[in-house]
Design a binder for these strands. Structure first.
Lengths: 146, 146
DNA sequence: CAGCTTTTTTGGATTGTTCAAAACAACGGT
DNA sequence: ACCGTTGTTTTGAACAATCCAAAAAAGCTG
C-alpha cells in the first residue's frame, strides 16, 4: 500500500486546495481529525512519531497553508495559543472551560455568518460574529465539589 | 495642587480597589480613560512622558493588578496583543476592523452575562458569552472604494 | 525522468508577556 | 512628623508562540 492510499480523504482535501501532497501535510491533517482543537505544538507532538524528522516549523507552515486555502480554521481563545480545527464551512462557536481549558464546539443557532447583529455596528461592514462561551466543564465542576 | 487632587477619580478607584495609589498607577488609569482599548505598549507610551522613569514592566504590573481587582477588563482579539479597558461592569462586546484593527464597543442587547445561550452547553456551567464582531470600519471601506 | 516550483529544514529573530530579587515608596500608627 | 511594615517599582533575564529567510529536498508536469 502506498502512502497515498492510506489517507485518501486528507490527500483529496489537500490536493483539492491546490497544495502539494506531502507526508507531513497529510499527518497534520490527520492529527486535526483526531484532535479537533489542537495547537501547533499538539499537532507537532502527534505528527513526529509517525513522520520522524518533521519540524515544528513545517507544522506551522502546513497549518498556515491550510488556513490560507480554507481547509482549516484558526481560533484563539484569550490567553491561549492558536488552535486549529477542520470544521470550517459552518459558522460554529466554542465553549471553553476556564478551569482546565477543555473546548467543545457549539453549533450556531442561525445557519450562517454573521449569526448575530450588533446593537450598533458603528458603520462597520459586518462580516462575522465570533462567539466564545466561557464556563466550567462537567469534569471540573465535579472536582470542585469533591 | 497636589498630585492626588489632579486625578480624583483615578485615585478613588484605585484606593477603593484596595491598592496603593502611585503616580504610575494613576497615569495608567488615566491613559485607559483616554484610549479605551489600549495595549500595554500603548499605555506605556502614554504614561512615560508624564511619569518619566516608568517601566513597561510597571505598566504590566498595574494593568494586571487592576484586572485582578476588577477595575479593568482585558480583551484579546485573535492575533492581537491584549487590550485593556475601563468599562467593566456591563457585559459589552466589541467590533474589530479586520483591516486597520480599529475597535469599538458594542452594547450588549441583553443586560447581563451570559447574554447568549449556547445551543448545546455540553454540560458546562456557563458563565459568560464573549462576542467579537469582525468587519471593516467606515474609514477602511472608503479607502477600498477610492 | 528532468526540470521547475513548492515544501521542508535549519537556525535565528521577534513580539508579548512573565518571573524574581533588590531598591524603593505608600500609608497607618506612634 | 517620622518609622516600620508591606506593597510597588525597577532591572534584568527568561519564556512561549510565532514568523522570517536561505539552502536543501522533494512533488509534480510534461
Amino acid at each position: 500500500m502506498t502512502i497515498a492510499d492510506s489517507h485518501p480523504e486528507a490527500e483529496t482535501a489537500i490536493r483539492g486546495a491546490g497544495l502539494r501532497v506531502t507526508e507531513s501535510r497529510r499527518a497534520v491533517y490527520e492529527a486535526l481529525r483526531e484532535h479537533p482543537h489542537a495547537s501547533a505544538e499538539d499537532v507537532f507532538a502527534q505528527v513526529v512519531p509517525t513522520v520522524p524528522g518533521t519540524s515544528l516549523q513545517s507544522v506551522y507552515n502546513a497549518l498556515n497553508d491550510f488556513v490560507g486555502a480554507g481547509l482549516v480554521r484558526r481560533i484563539e481563545p484569550a490567553g491561549r495559543a492558536g488552535l486549529f480545527e477542520l470544521r470550517v464551512a459552518d459558522n460554529h462557536h466554542h465553549i471553553v472551560c476556564r478551569s482546565c481549558g477543555a473546548i467543545e464546539d457549539v453549533d450556531c443557532v442561525h445557519g450562517e455568518a454573521p449569526c448575530l447583529q450588533p446593537s450598533d455596528a458603528h458603520g462597520f461592514a459586518l462580516e462575522v460574529a465570533e462567539v466564545t462561551f466561557w464556563g466550567v466543564c462537567p469534569a471540573c465542576s465535579t472536582d470542585a465539589v469533591a
